[in-house]
């Protein structure tokens, strides 16, 4: 799980173009949206694509996103359970 959290941080830094940010700068338990990492709806699209392309997870129900994308930790837990690649 620890490896997956670190991998996710690196992936998010890359897909969201967080240039100059390091994995250590991200608190895996902080909220991804609003406060914390400060992501917005455009970033949510990037995360949905990341889930599908990298882990083979297609989110059919948009309401799921609220819980899955609460933090890096919640994302990692969901990926661990549902990944197909």
């Amino acid at each position: 799980m620890k490896d997956l959290v670190l991998e996710l941080k690196k992936e998010i830094i890359e897909v969201l173009n967080f240039e100059g940010m390091t994995p250590e700068d991200i608190d895996e338990n902080a909220p991804l949206f609003g406060d914390g990492l400060g992501l917005d709806s455009i970033d949510a699209l990037e995360l949905i694509v990341l889930m599908e392309k990298k882990y083979g997870i297609k989110l059919a129900d948009p309401n799921q996103g609220r819980e899955i994308f609460a933090s890096i930790t919640t994302m990692a837990a969901y990926i661990k359970e549902h990944r197909t690649k």
């Binding site: 173009n17 967080f18 240039e19 400060g38």
Partner: peptide
């Protein structure tokens, strides 16, 4: 201000 890191140069 984490949004800073998302900005372009």
């Amino acid at each position: 201000y984490p949004k800073f890191f998302k900005m372009d140069p």
